[in-house]
């Protein structure tokens, strides 16, 4: 069962945490480490609403290690007014935090079988906590595969960390990019190809997929055509969010509220909505 944590007294009030560290990942992407001052427990796949004083509030998935709740880690891409403001915060600045919210990746349900993690671009950020969990409790899972797709080798998120994972013997990591210079010795092509060729056992596989919606669409199609049950393919959806607590109506996706019925969904649950345009 996927659990929710920390139902708080007044859910519209942020708590303020100090920025401890700030690291630039890519030209437009930064990771902030926050000090909650207490263990900030969360499950992989959950998100917080991050508030910059007087600017605004946006949902950002938690990218840290769930086994290390003393540090709260968020990777943010500067795409709008508030996310740009978050990325500009220096160590010592205060960030408003509400959360954690949402349904998590099915780490318990996935136990006992193979796990395929397919990440596209910034989609690796919501998946990183799941990867930490898989590695920390490695014995509970069968073969573990990580497929990362990105724009180009220079634009791969967490590339140093992905390389470290790749050097482990117990996780199979494949990276592919959409474009590269001809000196690139890695894969050049779409992430769906990595899924098509990998040696996981479809009848005993749980897949965790996150990235641009179109990438998820194709990755899911590939997984299902390889025989992974739609109930065992999970995606992380994104919609406009204002309250994150199921009251403002913005994040509706058909009958579901992304904030409380998601953002993680089994594909079987949202298969119909996935195919409807402009939903």
């Amino acid at each position: 069962m996927q659990a929710r944590l920390n139902v708080r007294a007044d859910p519209t009030l942020p708590e303020f945490f100090r920025v401890r560290k700030r690291r630039r990942e890519l030209a437009d992407t930064w990771t902030l480490e926050l000090e909650p001052g207490r263990p900030f427990g969360f499950l992989p796949g959950q998100f917080n609403m991050l508030y910059v004083f007087g600017v605004g509030e946006v949902p950002i998935s938690i990218s840290g290690d769930p086994a290390n709740p003393e540090v709260l880690v968020h990777t943010v891409r500067a795409v709008g007014k508030t996310s740009q403001a978050i990325c500009a915060l220096r160590p010592g600045a205060m960030v408003g935090v509400r959360g954690p919210y949402g349904i998590s990746w099915p780490m318990n349900e996935a136990a006992g079988g193979d796990v395929v993690v397919a990440a596209g671009g910034i989609g690796l950020a919501p998946l990183r906590s799941a990867i930490y969990h898989l590695m920390a409790q490695r014995e509970r899972y069968g073969r573990v595969f990580l497929f990362c797709g990105g724009r180009s080798p220079e634009l791969l998120l967490y590339s140093a960390e992905v390389r470290r994972w790749r050097s482990r013997f117990d996780i199979e990591v494949e990276v592919t990019v959409d474009s590269a210079a001809s000196q690139w010795r890695g894969n050049l092509g779409v992430v769906t190809k990595l899924i098509a060729r990998a040696g996981f056992e479809p009848s005993a596989t749980t897949a965790l997929v996150c990235g641009p919606e179109i990438m998820m669409r194709f990755a899911v199609t590939e997984l299902v055509s390889r025989g992974v049950a739609p109930e065992r393919v999970y995606v992380s959806m994104e919609r406009n969010m204002k309250c994150a607590i199921g009251l403002c109506g913005h994040c509706q996706y058909g009958p579901q509220f992304i904030c409380k019925d998601g953002p993680v969904f089994s594909y079987a649950k949202i298969e119909r909505q996935f195919k409807v345009r402009e939903l």
């Binding site: 596209g120 671009g121 797709g149 474009s179 779409v190 769906t192 990235g211 641009p212 179109i214």
Partner: peptide, 13 residues
């Protein structure tokens, strides 16, 4: 696959 790559889905909006 090539068409998908053409869409440059990982680019910033």
């Amino acid at each position: 696959a090539t068409r998908l790559r053409m869409l440059d889905v990982y680019a910033s909006a």
